[in-house]
Amino acid sequence: MTSCHIAEEHIQKVAIFGGTHGNELTGVFLVKHWLENGAEIQRTGLEVKPFITNPRAVKKCTRYIDCDLNRIFDLENLGKKMSEDLPYEVRRAQEINHLFGPKDSEDSYDIIFDLHNTTSNMGCTLILEDSRNNFLIQMFHYIKTSLAPLPCYVYLIEHPSLKYATTRSIAKYPVGIEVGPQPQGVLRADILDQMRKMIKHALDFIHHFNEGKEFPPCAIEVYKIIEKVDYPRDENGEIAAIIHPNLQDQDWKPLHPGDPMFLTLDGKTIPLGGDCTVYPVFVNEAAYYEKKEAFAKTTKLTLNAKSIRCCLH
């Protein structure tokens, strides 16, 4: 018999989150649709729960009410004593943790798909938090293969000092899905179709896995975050240069030392320094102006996964 890495157990509980950011409308629209008619997301033997994560922000069509829901799922915020004085999103995070967690427990949901849009030209993107997770690498390989020839990129946010504390991190297997470009507060049919297909293929993978299909060893190309880059700023902290036209919409493309990065209003080009080629992502993302992030630098690498098969009882 072929030796293989056996994944822990079959997958039982899956959640699909929309509206973690209330103005990213593809996930909101799909989740609302699936709450009314969820036939397309159901798979035999699998509990799939669509869920609106930040209903107040969705109602106002804004990213958040008090603070970013997708950055506060750490033990400090989840452990705060519940009171009306807490920011709305912290209270909501505790409610979500109660419903789908608790985080880092045996009772937490197996998989959470968190649906997002970006204003950046990132196409279909899967966000991975753990480079050693054979199950998710296999799932992402399946999704990428199923979507081809449509490109699907994998963004690895594993980093020693950049801690995200994402909404989906309460699950055993957290999956971020990011599709763009799409303006905030807008629905685009092409973007919706791409996100819908990503979810379909992900659920198909889980179904095949649960039925005992063995997935042979595989490898995927990923883009691992190195650092986030702020806009150049003046002495008052105001933005002093904008994304250069040569960099705009060039997510995932190589940016070499000396290539144009920013452009000042008086026409001066600010190039990339250093001696390493990087791959920019979230270029000129609207939501990241407040976070002082013009783009993120990534490096390209390959992740390998062992063969996996479900432990059938």
Results as ranks from 00 to 15, higher is better:
162 L>R: 15
118 T>Y: 00
274 G>L: 02
249 D>C: 02
23 N>M: 03
80 K>S: 13
73 F>D: 11
73 F>W: 11
58 V>F: 07
143 I>M: 06
179 V>E: 03
192 L>Q: 06
284 N>C: 01
34 W>V: 03
244 H>W: 00
138 Q>H: 08
305 A>D: 05
247 L>T: 02
159 H>R: 13
105 S>E: 12
251 D>S: 00
265 L>R: 11
206 I>N: 06
179 V>G: 00
184 Q>V: 11
93 A>W: 13
275 D>L: 06
19 G>R: 05
276 C>V: 14
78 L>D: 11
9 E>A: 11
176 G>I: 14
229 V>A: 06
42 Q>P: 04
42 Q>D: 09
203 L>D: 05
239 I>R: 10
118 T>H: 01
10 H>Q: 15
248 Q>C: 09
142 Y>C: 02
173 Y>C: 10
299 T>N: 08
198 M>Y: 02
92 R>D: 06
286 A>W: 07
163 K>D: 13
44 T>D: 14
44 T>V: 09
312 L>I: 14
29 F>D: 04
210 N>L: 00
72 I>V: 14
120 S>G: 00
287 A>K: 13
194 Q>V: 08
203 L>P: 04
230 D>K: 12
120 S>V: 06
204 D>Q: 01
141 H>D: 01
75 L>R: 13
299 T>E: 13
22 G>W: 08
192 L>F: 09
125 T>S: 09
118 T>P: 02
112 I>L: 08
199 I>M: 12
249 D>M: 00
248 Q>I: 10
154 V>T: 06
153 Y>V: 00
171 A>K: 04
7 A>F: 15
293 E>V: 15
185 G>N: 10
267 G>C: 05
105 S>R: 11
305 A>K: 01
294 A>W: 05
278 V>F: 07
126 L>A: 02
260 P>V: 01
262 F>P: 01
123 G>L: 02
33 H>D: 07
137 I>L: 12
3 S>T: 14
164 Y>G: 15
257 P>I: 00
98 H>L: 13
148 A>Q: 12
54 N>A: 00
224 K>W: 03
185 G>D: 02
30 L>P: 05
179 V>N: 03
71 R>M: 12
144 K>C: 10
175 V>D: 00
88 Y>F: 10
165 A>D: 13
287 A>H: 14
182 Q>N: 12
22 G>A: 10
194 Q>L: 12
280 P>E: 05
100 F>T: 05
310 C>P: 07
136 L>M: 08
60 K>T: 12
148 A>F: 13
24 E>F: 01
245 P>F: 03
207 H>D: 10
157 I>H: 15
40 E>V: 05
175 V>P: 03
302 T>R: 09
232 P>Q: 05
62 T>L: 12
149 P>D: 06
21 H>A: 13
304 N>C: 13
140 F>R: 04
10 H>N: 14
251 D>Y: 03
63 R>E: 07
58 V>C: 10
279 Y>C: 01
5 H>C: 14
273 G>H: 09
83 S>H: 13
137 I>Y: 06
251 D>W: 03
102 P>I: 09
87 P>E: 11
110 D>H: 05
313 H>A: 15
116 H>D: 06
192 L>V: 13
236 N>F: 10
53 T>Q: 02
247 L>I: 09
221 E>C: 02
105 S>V: 10
95 E>G: 08
5 H>F: 10
246 N>L: 09
271 P>F: 09
161 S>E: 15
28 V>M: 13
305 A>W: 06
114 D>W: 00
215 F>C: 00
66 D>P: 01
101 G>H: 07
274 G>V: 04
61 C>P: 04
287 A>F: 10
300 K>A: 04
256 H>E: 11
192 L>I: 14
107 D>K: 13
253 K>F: 05
120 S>E: 04
96 I>L: 13
52 I>Q: 01
36 E>Q: 14
208 H>D: 15
3 S>G: 14
255 L>F: 07
128 L>A: 02
128 L>F: 06
140 F>E: 05
112 I>M: 01
118 T>Q: 04
18 G>Q: 05
226 I>R: 07
35 L>K: 11
156 L>K: 01
197 K>Q: 13
278 V>H: 00
252 W>T: 08
72 I>S: 14
182 Q>S: 15
74 D>N: 13
71 R>F: 10
56 R>Q: 13
218 C>K: 03
276 C>Y: 10
63 R>D: 07
86 L>N: 11
273 G>Y: 07
194 Q>I: 09
158 E>C: 00
279 Y>E: 05
238 E>K: 10
198 M>A: 14
61 C>Q: 13
93 A>M: 12
42 Q>F: 11
291 K>I: 04
96 I>Y: 06
240 A>I: 09
29 F>I: 08
205 F>V: 05
130 D>R: 03
238 E>V: 07
48 V>Q: 02
165 A>S: 14
122 M>A: 14
289 Y>N: 15
16 I>Y: 00
221 E>Y: 04
89 E>L: 01
162 L>C: 14
67 C>W: 09
177 I>K: 06
303 L>S: 02
142 Y>S: 02
56 R>V: 12
69 L>D: 07
30 L>E: 02
233 R>P: 02
102 P>E: 10
113 F>N: 00
311 C>N: 14
250 Q>Y: 06
123 G>W: 00
253 K>P: 04
78 L>H: 10
213 K>A: 11
169 S>P: 08
144 K>V: 14
192 L>G: 02
297 K>Y: 07
92 R>Q: 13
143 I>S: 04
280 P>C: 02
113 F>H: 03
112 I>T: 01
10 H>K: 15
134 N>V: 07
35 L>T: 09
92 R>E: 07
58 V>P: 04
290 E>S: 11
230 D>Q: 14
2 T>L: 09
170 I>Q: 05
158 E>R: 00
83 S>I: 13
7 A>N: 13
147 L>Y: 02
44 T>I: 08
228 K>H: 12
127 I>G: 03
132 R>P: 07
244 H>D: 02
232 P>G: 05
258 G>E: 11
51 F>E: 04
71 R>S: 14
282 F>L: 09
138 Q>S: 02
65 I>E: 10
113 F>T: 05
294 A>E: 05
172 K>L: 02
125 T>N: 03
312 L>R: 14
289 Y>Q: 15
29 F>L: 10
65 I>W: 07
33 H>I: 00
249 D>S: 04
41 I>Y: 02
309 R>M: 08
128 L>M: 07
154 V>L: 00
301 L>K: 08
221 E>K: 03
44 T>K: 14
284 N>F: 03
177 I>V: 09
80 K>N: 13
222 V>H: 05
193 D>S: 11
130 D>K: 01
131 S>Q: 09
